[in-house]
Design a binder for these strands. Structure first.
Lengths: 337, 337
DNA sequence: GGATGTGTTGTGATCGATAACAACAGTGCG
DNA sequence: CGCACTGTTGTTATCGATCACAACACATCC
C-alpha cells in the first residue's frame, strides 16, 4: 500500500499547525516559537517528510544548476562536472547535465532550450567555443551563466578556468632550464580556447628566452593525434624536447618516439598537460602540468551562486586557478649526442 | 526589460483559445482540430514558448532521471553517465547527477533523499555495492531503479551491465591459447561486484583448461595499486602472463615490469580490461577487453523507462552487454627462456 | 423529432510550497 | 485605559500545467 509522499500539509496536520508555519520552519524564518518549531520538526521526521523540488521551483526559484557540456565522458569535462556537483551538493543545489549532440549552433540552441525549460537557476558551460557569447545569448539574458574556460579573452560571460598560459610557460621554461635549445609543441585543436592559451604560453616562454618558436603541430587531444605528431617529430634529428598540450597526446608522442628508438628522457624530454591519473604510470612517468579541475568546477559553481543570490553583483573578472608543474621522469637534462 | 517567460496562458490568449487547448496541443491529444492546432503552434513559436518542467512534474510525473554514482569523475561512471544522458535526451528526459560523498550507509541514504526530493521518475545507480538492495530500499519502493552492475548475483533490483565474466574468460583463454601455462590476476577491490565477476571469469577459464589458479593480487583500480602488484609479480621468475582487472592497473603493471627489465610481450604478456582511450597508446599498446559503457548506460535508461511507462512490466532478467577482446601488442606467444 | 454518439472546446479543481496580507496575543508606555 | 508595537500564527492567492467534467455543435440512427 504505497501512499503518496507526505506534503507540507500532512506535516501541518500532524503538528497541529498551519502549512505556512511548516514552510517557515523549513526556511528558517526567525519568527517561529521554539515550541512550535520542535513540534513541526518532529512531525517531519515522523512522516519522513521531504520538500518537493518541483513545487518550490514553481513558486520561487529553482535549486537546479545546469551543466552544459560538450562531452562529459572526457577527462576534463567529467572532472569539472564532478567539482560542480560536489560544490552544488554542499550548497543545497542539484545538477542537471546536458551534453551537446554536436557543436553546431543548432545543437547548442537545443541544449539551451532544454536547460531553460527545466528552469535552472544557473548554468555552467563547459564548451570549446570561443567566448563570444553570440551562441549562448539565448541563455545569457535568462539565467546567470559561467563559462568554464581557461582563456583570457574578453568575454561577455564570466570565465572560470585554469591558468593555461602560466602552466604552459612553466612547462616550457622547465625544459629550457634543463638545457634544451628549443621546445617543440603539439598543440590542441585551434577552436578550443584552452588549447590556444597553452600554445600562447609556450610561445611566450620561448620568446622570453630569446628562442624562435618552431612550427606548431596540431592534434585533436587524443592519443592517436599525439602518436602521429610523434612520428613526425621522431624524424627530426635535432629534436630534444616536446611539450604536448595534454597528457593523452603526450602518451602518443612517447609511443611514437619509443618505436623510433628515441630514448625518453635520454635523448628527448616530453612534458604533458593535465596530470590525468594515469600520467604517473606512463613509461616513463610523465612530467606534466597539474590542473585541479575539481577545484575549477567548484569555483564555477561559486561564481554562479553569487550571481544567483545577488543578481546585480559586479561580474567578476576571469577567475583563474593556478596550474603547477609536476616533474617526473619523462623530462631530463639535455645530453649532447 | 526582462519579462517573465511566457506561460501556457499567454499562448492561449494569443491563439484565442483556452489554456486547456494549448495543453492538449502540447501533449498531442487526438481531438484537436487542425485549424486550432496550427493557431496554437504558431502562437507558441511567436512567443518563444517553452513548457515549464516544474509545473509539469508537480501535476503529473516528472521527466527527470537521477543518476546515483560513486564518482562521476572516474572513467567507468563517467562513460556510463554519458550514455544515460544521451539516451535520456532522445527520450525527452533530463538527467540529474548525485555523487556519493562516501559509500557509508548514511551517505547513500542522503543521496537517495536528494533524488527523491527532486521527484525523479527513475534512478540509475552506478555503485560498487553488493546488490542486496538493503541500502537502496528507501529508493526501491518509491521509484523504478536500475543498478548498473555487471554481476550475475541475484538481486531485487534489475541489473544492467557488461559481461565481466565472459570478458575475463576471453582474456584468460587468449593468454592460455598463446601457450602460457598459467595466468596471474590483478583483481579489483573485493567489494565491487564487477571486480568479483572478472575474477570469477578468470578463475573459470583456468579451471576449464585444467590449470590451478595462482593466488590473486588485489588492487584498488588505480595505477598505483597496479604498480605495486607489478613489483611483486616481477620477482617471480616463472611469470609469463598477467590479466589485470582494468587498464589503469595494467598500466601500473607494465611500468613495474619495465623497471625490472622484463620485456613485454617478449617475456611477459599483459592484458587489461575496459579499453580506455589511452590503452591503444600504452607501451606496448595494451591487449584489453572492450566494454561499451555508453551502450550500457543506454540500456540502463531503456530499462528504467519501460518500468516507468509500464509500472507492472515484468522485471527483466539481468541485461548483459557483451565485452570483446581487443588484441594489441602487449600479449604474445610464450617464449621459452 | 428525439435519443445517442462523437468530436471539439472551455471551466474549475488540483499538485506542493510560498509570499503578501491579516489576525491575534502580549508588552510597554503615556 | 487605550494606543502603538512586536512576535507569532493563520488565510488566501499564486506559480504553470493537467485532469475530470461539463458544454456545445454536429452527425447518425431509429
Amino acid at each position: 500500500m504505497r501512499r503518496r509522499t507526505p506534503s507540507i500539509h500532512d506535516v501541518a496536520k500532524v503538528a497541529g499547525v498551519s502549512a505556512q508555519t511548516v514552510s517557515r520552519v523549513l526556511n528558517e524564518h526567525p519568527n517561529v516559537s521554539d515550541r512550535t518549531r520542535s513540534l513541526v520538526t518532529s512531525a517531519m521526521t515522523e512522516l519522513g517528510y521531504r520538500p518537493n523540488h518541483a513545487a518550490r521551483s514553481l513558486r520561487g526559484g529553482s535549486r537546479l544548476i545546469g551543466v552544459l557540456s560538450s562531452r562529459t565522458s572526457f577527462f576534463g569535462p567529467s572532472a569539472a562536472l564532478y567539482g560542480v556537483e560536489a560544490a552544488a551538493a554542499d550548497a543545497g543545489y542539484e545538477v542537471v547535465v546536458v551534453n551537446l549532440a554536436s557543436t553546431s549552433p543548432g545543437a547548442v540552441r537545443a541544449a539551451c532550450e532544454r536547460l531553460l525549460s527545466l528552469g535552472v537557476a544557473g548554468v555552467v558551460a563547459v564548451l570549446p567555443l570561443e567566448a563570444d557569447g553570440e551562441l549562448l545569448s539565448p541563455l545569457l539574458d535568462a539565467v546567470p551563466t559561467v563559462l568554464l574556460q581557461g582563456s583570457r579573452a574578453p568575454s561577455p560571460l564570466p570565465l572560470v578556468g585554469v591558468d593555461n598560459e602560466g602552466g604552459a610557460r612553466q612547462a616550457t621554461r622547465h625544459l629550457l632550464d634543463l638545457g634544451h635549445e628549443t621546445v617543440w609543441h603539439v598543440a590542441g585543436p585551434r577552436d578550443w580556447p584552452d588549447a590556444v592559451a597553452r600554445e600562447d604560453g609556450w610561445r611566450s616562454a620561448l620568446e622570453a628566452a630569446g628562442v624562435e618558436a618552431p612550427p606548431t603541430l596540431h592534434g585533436t587531444w587524443d592519443g592517436a593525434s599525439g602518436y602521429e605528431a610523434g612520428r613526425i617529430l621522431a624524424r627530426m634529428e635535432e629534436l630534444t624536447a616536446v611539450f604536448a598540450a595534454n597528457d593523452q597526446m603526450a602518451l602518443g608522442v612517447l609511443l611514437a618516439l619509443a618505436e623510433s628508438g628515441r630514448d625518453v628522457p635520454g635523448e628527448v624530454s616530453v612534458v604533458g598537460f593535465d596530470d590525468i591519473p594515469e600520467a604517473a604510470f606512463f613509461r616513463p612517468p610523465l612530467t606534466t602540468v597539474r590542473q585541479d579541475l575539481t577545484e575549477v568546477g567548484r569555483r564555477c559553481l561559486e561564481t554562479v551562486l553569487t550571481r544567483i543570490t545577488d543578481a546585480d553583483a559586479a561580474l567578476p573578472a576571469a577567475t583563474v586557478v593556478t596550474a603547477d608543474l609536476v616533474v617526473r621522469a619523462s623530462s631530463g637534462p639535455r645530453r649532447d649526442g
